[in-house]
Amino acid sequence: MFPTPIERTSRAWQLTYRMLLPAALIMWLLPLIAVAIFSIKPAADFTTGNYWGWPSAFEGFTNYGKVFFESDMPRYLLNSVFITLPTVAGAVILSSMTGFALGIYRFRANILIFFMFVAGNFVPFQILMVPVRDLTLQLGLYNTITGLVLFHVAFQTGFCTLFMRNFIRALPFELIEAARVEGVNEFRIFWFVVLPLMKPAIAALAVLIFTFIWNDYFWAVVLTQGVETQPVTAGITSFNAQYRAAYHLMSAGSIIAALPPVLMFFLMQRHFIAGLTLGAVK
């Protein structure tokens, strides 16, 4: 293990290390801690200039209650859910098909198609913006959740295919050959042999895509507008315009907007990290 395990070092360094850890963490999360403190302060603290002193009262419930009951925030959160969940399902289903096809079969166009998906995934959003917006308008899906979901599914399929295909490549191929010798047809092989083995990959992609889509801002502004359809990332900016200078409310709103992916991450940490490293770093 590198660096030298702490148990094998001097007593003095061990103690220093244990003190450094929390100190470094607080430094690292300082901007976030600041926002968390803001979100429980009463409005009065901001008018009296008590920004960084001890909160004069704990108003956490009032602030978060306001965000939940007196603003459009719940609606934006709901929109985000309706955008994110179908996208996760769609991208995972489509990419398990492409991943299977590209991971198992040898044919000439295989690597070409694979690289098309990979390359598409790296492309800057802006080069797609005008045509995709136009396409969505022509389909009559501009400013609908469906329109946004369709694009997200298509785009995320690129990344998911990369991941699924590499995952399937690493499975023992003998399993598939054995099934073929038994006369099992290819669709049953997909459904009964490969798909059950893909569960970890599916879990990893699901949490990862959830985070990506929940946090998307660009496509939300390009393809939707208004409280009926926009997700919470876009909603938070209108929320802030509504509560200009009400820093306690803006902080509470931001924390709520950021929370779902955070929960997802803490619940499914191992899968999340497996997804982020693209399965390439074991």
Binding site: P31, N215, Y217, T233, I236, T237, S254, A257, A258, F265
Partner: peptide, 16 residues
């Protein structure tokens, strides 16, 4: 943790 938070919120946090 910071990676999981949306860039919009990180942007706001740093603006403040």
């Amino acid at each position: 943790f910071p990676f999981v938070i949306s860039q919009v919120v990180v942007g706001l946090v740093f603006t403040w």
